[in-house]
Design a protein around this nucleic acid. Sequence first.
DNA 1: GAGTCTGTCGTACGCTGTGCGAGTGACATC
DNA 2: GATGTCACTCGCACAGCGTACGACAGACTC
Lengths: 236, 236
Amino acid sequence: MKQHFSSVWTRESRPAKSTTLSRDQIVRAAMELLDAEGLDALSMRRLGARLGSGATSIYWHVANKDELLELVMDEVFSKVALPAPDVTGWRDAASVFAYGLRAALFDHPWSAALIGTRPSIGPNAMELSARLLRTFSLAGFEGMALDYASSTLMAYVLGATTPEIAWRAAMAGAELNDEGLMAGVKSVVDRAAADHPELAERYAEYDGMDPDIARKLNFDFGLTCILDGLQARLGR
Amino acid sequence: MKQHFSSVWTRESRPAKSTTLSRDQIVRAAMELLDAEGLDALSMRRLGARLGSGATSIYWHVANKDELLELVMDEVFSKVALPAPDVTGWRDAASVFAYGLRAALFDHPWSAALIGTRPSIGPNAMELSARLLRTFSLAGFEGMALDYASSTLMAYVLGATTPEIAWRAAMAGAELNDEGLMAGVKSVVDRAAADHPELAERYAEYDGMDPDIARKLNFDFGLTCILDGLQARLGR
DNA sequence: GAGTCTGTCGTACGCTGTGCGAGTGACATC
DNA sequence: GATGTCACTCGCACAGCGTACGACAGACTC
């Protein structure tokens, strides 16, 4: 039995005549719950309770939980700023985009687990990529290269950010100052270092460094590296 | 209540004296189940059944389902080839790595959903990144830049591949030849195009193109772009 | 007053991860 | 041979999950 391709964006939202519940409210409440307690904490029952209504009432406004997640995920993309490139120059605009997307994902860490799960084709995601295309278009990219350039940048930001989020989540609760809590991390790292002298050398350089700053430097390196690579393609 | 950082890699595997069940067997069976039926199909009961044993027997060899997923995920990284850079030159080695990782992820599409979930610190992941470091080291990168360079490449591959996998999964069952099945995709795309003329122009260029080939071209563009950016950094 | 449409919700089904404790067989020690 | 200890398996049970279904209430139309 073949399945049709289907997604929330394929259907219209229910007309919002309802007084007590609406798709917007549901999405907003889901976002709050996700931000506060993470992906596992979002259940239809808990969400219903937070909205002061029955769990199954939600299903009038949303087909199923997957679609709800699609809606919430798209909301994340709405929070990414992207300045007009004719004001700032395309490199600055692209940088602001990259840092903005990174920040938006950090603000909603549960999104890291959803990215690999469904394509981002909601209106906000579309709007964002259209603006990114415009940026690169004004920069001088044309034809396929225009598309390629913007998805290269997008890919880098996603691929750099999601593992960062995974790290942060794994460390949640463990604090740097408390040696006992970090012992687990250290033992994993030590084991790796023991087998691979190259890794040991690398880790040594990070000693005593704030991991957030280290990650930011890392991100910035890759970003300017990509922008350089793109720029080289502009002169043909 | 604070939580300790903990992971499978922190503990030793149970000594493999067991005749009927072993960690390796469990991981292998889990991988088969995941490949055949996807992430949702993996339940401890189904896995137990496939192994011809009770569901809860698994818990003697693996602390919980999360750890099992960590183990299976690490197995994916073991399948990535990386040629010695002194034979092929660092750019070729890096390309082979990138395509190899991409292929490994494609072979196990469920991995896309796990990448944002937990840091990849298993022995195979470590081994792979150590080899990548060696590659860039021989290329001439030093200090922090060595680390940055390899994680930039890693980030790009992950970020480019996971959305591709998400797309493929969403299209599963829908075939290009069958217009009816693709109608859903088309309506989403059309809606986006209506709101954003830039997007419409882009989509038009892909018309009639094999999407797999289009994606490969896209991937290749970004990859050479990054390698160029990295190379520019080599001459200081 | 009757009928229809919109929206809510209680109940129920089949499924999940996993804690617990009972059970089994191999081996060591007396 | 009896007893004890360990490595391992597994049935049961619990709390929770997503969601199909049908009953129900209120508003609006004829």
